[in-house]
Amino acid sequence: MTKGVEEATRLLGGGVDVLVNKAGRGGPAPAELRPSAEVHAQLYLNLLGAWDATGTALPHLERARDRVVLIASRMVILPLTAAYGVSKRALAAYADTLRLEVGTHVGVTTVYPSMVRSPIHDSTREAGLSLDGVSRPEPLEGVESAVVAAVTARRAPREVATTRRGRAEMALARHAPALADRIVRRTVAARVAAGAFAGAPLAEGLRRRHGRDNK
């Protein structure tokens, strides 16, 4: 990571003003199973990769009195993708702590998109664990616009939802988490009943608990 920041500094002519941590990895990872190599890979990239990049670039950001943006997610309370949810929740916690440490000199913004159609979902879909119909996709352009707005704002915003619906979802999850859980469980149960995860070995436990283990 140090070499990457050094190269960016050289190309940009002496400094790094803004860092946007947008690299991410998703994949099948049921919470009820022991951590797989996929779980470790997601935690490493989504959390530790962003932490490493931020820590490496921070001296430049502090000199520039500018900001860092971290891409979290609203898809953190969905089943079968625990590693992604855990890593993104941890990333948000990292941003909160970073803000307390460096917020007097560096702006720290956490952006919360939902599902965006991209190859990040391919491995989950191939494993038969697609969350299509559970999470509503949103346009990539909206996420990009939210990041640009956060970077160019006079003062770095603390948290940014990428859509109006996203702001409502974040408020619901924060102020009525039990209700948010019930909504997700009801949606997932309907998907299981419709055969969405039929034949997926990693969803065996979920199907069994919904009485669909042989379907």
Score class of each variant (00 low, 15 high):
P157Q: 07
G107K: 04
V151P: 04
L206D: 02
P30E: 01
G211I: 09
R34C: 12
P35K: 08
V143M: 04
L129P: 00
R136I: 13
V184H: 04
Y94W: 12
A53M: 15
S73M: 01
P30T: 07
S130L: 07
G4I: 14
T124K: 03
T2V: 14
V18M: 05
V184P: 03
E6G: 09
A64F: 00
T152L: 15
P28I: 10
V106I: 07
V160T: 00
H60E: 00
A95V: 06
L202S: 06
E169Q: 15
P139C: 08
R34N: 12
L179Y: 04
A93Y: 07
A171R: 11
L206H: 02
G142S: 05
G107Q: 00
G49W: 02
A29Y: 00
A168Y: 08
A173D: 08
R74K: 12
E126T: 12
D122N: 11
S145K: 13
R154A: 15
G13N: 00
A83R: 02
A173F: 06
P30C: 07
D66K: 09
R164C: 06
P79T: 06
A53H: 04
P177S: 07
A37Y: 04
A149Y: 04
H60K: 03
E126R: 14
D96K: 10
A168T: 14
E126K: 13
D213Q: 15
A82T: 08
V147T: 05
D17V: 12
D132W: 02
T152F: 10
A83D: 04
A37K: 09
A37L: 14
Y84E: 02
S145D: 14
R208I: 10
R99I: 10
R136L: 14
V143I: 10
R34K: 12
V188L: 02
I71K: 00
P79F: 03
V192H: 02
A92Q: 09
A37M: 08
R191D: 01
G85V: 04
T97W: 11
H40E: 12
G55H: 10
E138F: 07
M170R: 14
G199D: 03
E138P: 08
A127K: 00
V39Y: 13
K88Q: 08
M1I: 14
E126I: 11
G195A: 09
P137F: 02
I120L: 14
G205R: 09
L70G: 05
T9E: 10
A156R: 00
D181P: 06
E144R: 14
R63V: 08
A189L: 07
A171T: 12
K215I: 15
S145T: 14
P139A: 05
I71R: 03
V76G: 02
V86I: 15
I120N: 03
H105S: 15
V160M: 01
M75D: 10
G195W: 05
V111P: 03
H40A: 13
A176K: 01
A198S: 09
A146D: 04
A176Q: 08
M170D: 06
E32Y: 11
D66Y: 02
P28F: 07
L172T: 08
L98N: 08
G49L: 00
A190V: 08
P201R: 04
L61P: 01
V151A: 07
L45V: 12
M1Q: 13
V86A: 15
A178L: 13
R34T: 13
T187Q: 13
P201Q: 05
L33F: 06
